[in-house]
């Protein structure tokens, strides 16, 4: 859905759902997932529908992911760090983490 104008910053590598994903310093987790082509970052607790980042400014809570073991973090507010472990959230099972 998005491409980078230029490769700014330096490369960092996140682990997303167990796989390495390249990002750039200056990315937030939500931006890194979109840049890497992730179609969604969680499924909803109510119906299991897939959701992707929507507002990227901390108000919609669609970009909730598990970051370094803490669930339901707002991916759009957390800057990436090399070695950061990110997990997409699957519906009700992980809503309470």
């Amino acid at each position: 859905m998005f491409r980078r104008l230029a490769d700014s910053g330096s490369e960092v590598v996140l682990v997303v759902d167990g796989r390495p994903v390249a990002a750039r310093t200056g990315d937030t987790v939500a931006a890194a997932l979109l840049a890497a082509g992730f179609d969604h970052c969680r499924t909803t607790p109510a119906s299991g529908a897939p959701r992707a980042p929507y507002c990227l400014m901390g108000v919609c809570f669609e970009c909730l992911v598990t970051i370094d073991g803490i669930g339901s973090r707002q991916g759009c507010l957390v800057p990436v760090r090399d070695g950061m472990v990110v997990e997409t959230q699957i519906g009700r099972r992980e809503a309470g983490r």
Partner: peptide, 11 residues
Amino acid sequence: TLLKAQGMVPA
């Protein structure tokens, strides 16, 4: 926000 903060444009 993606454009300003990360230099990302819609593709």
